[in-house]
Simulated scan of single mutants.
Amino acid sequence: MGANPLLATINCSIGNIKNHLNDKDLCNLFLKIKEKEHNLTILEKYAINVMQTEALPQEFLWFQKDFNIPQEYIQK
């Protein structure tokens, strides 16, 4: 599988490559957001902000399809 557009949008906004997210990180962020809501890291908060402000709706749909994320976890 090629690079995921949603992940690319997030990582392009993160300057330090050591802080880039991978597919698993992003899946976990979506699937565990309710559990982690009050304990998000600065990087996770930043990734959410980037998704809300820079990602296209189609990127969410592709991510959801590629990684089988239930619709209730994908809300922009």
Rank of each mutant, 00 (worst) to 15 (best):
N11C: 04
N19C: 02
G15K: 09
N68Q: 12
C27P: 12
K24H: 13
L6N: 05
N19S: 03
K34A: 13
S13R: 15
L7P: 06
F30Q: 08
D25K: 02
F30S: 07
Q64V: 11
N68H: 10
F60N: 07
K76S: 14
G2P: 12
K65N: 11
M1W: 04
I14F: 00
E72V: 09
G2V: 05
E59H: 07
V50R: 00
M1C: 02
E37D: 09
A8Q: 13
K24G: 07
L56G: 01
M51L: 11
L31D: 06
T53K: 13
N28E: 10
E35L: 15
E37A: 15
G2M: 06
I10V: 12
K76M: 15
P57H: 10
F63Y: 06
I69F: 10
G15S: 08
K36N: 15
L6K: 01
A8T: 14
L31R: 14
I74V: 15
I69R: 09
F63R: 00
I10R: 05
E72T: 09
D66E: 15
K34T: 13
M1A: 01
I17K: 03
L26H: 08
K65P: 08
I14A: 03
I10Q: 03
T41N: 02
N4D: 15
S13Q: 15
M1E: 01
Q52K: 15
I10T: 04
F63G: 04
N11M: 00
W62D: 14
I69C: 11
Q75D: 10
N16S: 06
E44C: 07
L29W: 09
I74R: 07
D66R: 02
